[in-house]
Every structure is written in structure tokens, then in C-alpha cells.
Amino acid sequence: MSLTVQLYTMLSMIGMGASLGAALDTYHRFLKRGERKRWLVFIYDILFWIGQALAVFYVLLLVNEAELRMYVFLALLCGFAAYQSLLKSLYMKVLNLLIYIFVQTFYFCVRVVQLFIVKPITILIHLIIAFVLFLFRLLIGIGTGLWKVIIAILRLVWKITFIPVRFVCLVIWKPLPNHVKIFIKRQAGLLKYFKKMKKHIFLIWELIKKKLGGPRK
């Protein structure tokens, strides 16, 4: 092995030792051991160290065709120690800053979705419910002679409003990650509105059946 190859090997292993320290801190930052089961942490630890070993081996293979010498381990240790003493505090600050930016960007996107998609849909649902209740009250006041006309109007309203809205909602809803869906459901209370709408629809349907099937004078 030439001196140039040895120098490249030393420098690359020092860099890999520093990157190992940064990867270890990043791993501990996201793992949160206290919140996970022990067997799952054990599996994660094994996979992490296997990945780091493969990365070191790959770099060593590129530099000196994977020849192991004693100074390779010393260079890794020196790089790791240099990271711990010189770069760790700076790296953790940068990492926490990037995590904060990502989280704030995520919540901003969720607020935008809630403001421009969720709220208009909920307002539209309230308007539709109010319109259906208005038609039902109008129907009771007019009598049973215009049932077919009112039902035709309701079907038309259904086709004009619910079907396009449902299509748009499905197109927007399906690509969203599951944690975004859960957050939107909790924040916007869509389930509450859907249950309320379902309750009104069943109530209207029962009253319609009672009106149609009841005794006539």
C-alpha cells in the first residue's frame, strides 16, 4: 500500500468516525428509547450498527480495497473523539433547528389545508343541511301532493353538490399521510360534522316515510 493510499485511508476513516458520531446523535435524537419497547429498540440498534459498519466498509473498499490495518481503527476513534469534543454541540444545534423548521412547515401546511379545504367543506355541509331542512319544512307546509317534485329536487341537489365535493375530497384525501389525516380529523372535527349530517338525514328520512305511510284524511 502506497503512502498516498494510506493518507487517503487515514483521512477517510477520520471523516467516517466523525460521521459515525453525528449519525449516533441523530439516531438517539429520533429514537426516544423511553417511549419504545425494549425488543424494538434492540432491533433498531442492531440495524443501525449494521448500517454503519457497511458504510465504513464501503468507504474503505473505495479507498484501499478494504484492507484493514490497525491505524484504520485508530483513525475511526480519532474522528469520533474529534466530533465529540469539537463538533457535537454545533451539530446538535443545527439538527434541532432543522427539526424545528420542518415541524413548523408541516403545521403551516396543515393550517393551510384546514383553512382553504376543510373549512369551506364544513360550511358547504352546513348550508346543504340547512337547505334540506328548509325543503322539508316547506314540504310539510305544502302537503303531500308535491313529494315527487321535492324528491327530484333533492336528488338534483345531491348530484350538483355532494358528488363533486366527494370526488374532490377523495382526490385530496388519498395522497395525504396517515398522521396528517389524523391531525386534520382532530383539529377540524370532521367526524362530528359527518355524524351530525347523518343524524339529520336519517331524521328527515324517517319523517318522510312517516308522512308518506301515515293515515290520510
Rank of each mutant, 00 (worst) to 15 (best):
L31N: 06
L31G: 01
K32V: 02
G34F: 09
G34H: 12
K37A: 11
K37T: 09
K37V: 08
R38F: 05
W39H: 09
L40R: 05
F42E: 09
F42D: 08
F42K: 05
I43Q: 02
Y44I: 01
I46C: 00
F48K: 00
F48V: 02
G51E: 02
G51D: 01
G51Y: 00
A53H: 05
L54I: 13
L54H: 07
L54D: 00
Y58N: 03
Y58A: 13
V59R: 09
V59E: 08
V59F: 08
L60Q: 14
L61G: 14
L61A: 09
L62C: 12
V63S: 03
V63M: 03
V63C: 05
N64M: 04
N64Y: 03
E65T: 11
A66F: 11
E67L: 10
L68C: 04
M70F: 15
Y71K: 02
V72F: 12
V72H: 10
V72S: 12
F73W: 13
L74S: 11
L74P: 06
L76H: 04
L76Q: 02
L76R: 06
L76E: 02
L77H: 01
C78H: 00
G79Q: 01
G79N: 02
F80L: 15
A81R: 01
Q84W: 07
L86F: 09
L86G: 02
K88I: 07
S89N: 13
L90V: 12
M92V: 11
L95R: 07
L95I: 10
N96G: 04
L97Y: 15
L98A: 12
L98P: 07
L98T: 12
Y100W: 11
Y100S: 13
I101D: 09
I101K: 08
F102L: 11
V103D: 10
V103P: 00
V103I: 14
Q104S: 10
Y107H: 13
C109V: 07
V112N: 06
V112W: 08
V113F: 14
Q114N: 14
L115W: 15
I117L: 15
V118P: 00
K119I: 10
I121G: 10
I121Y: 12
I121K: 07
I121H: 09
T122A: 09
T122E: 13
I123Q: 10
I125T: 08
I125P: 01
L127R: 07
L127D: 08
L127V: 04
I129A: 03
A130D: 11
A130W: 05
V132Q: 06
L133F: 02
L133V: 03
L135V: 02
L135W: 09
F136S: 10
R137G: 15
L138S: 11
L139D: 14
I140N: 08
G141K: 12
G141A: 14
G141D: 14
G141S: 12
I142N: 10
I142K: 12
T144L: 13
G145K: 02
W147Q: 05
K148W: 07
K148A: 03
A152V: 05
A152D: 05
I153W: 04
L154E: 13
R155V: 15
R155P: 05
V157Q: 07
V157I: 15
W158C: 00
W158A: 03
W158F: 15
K159M: 14
K159P: 01
I160C: 10
I160Y: 08
T161A: 15
T161C: 15
T161K: 03
F162M: 11
V165E: 00
F167V: 07
F167Y: 11
V168E: 06
V168A: 15
V168M: 13
C169I: 08
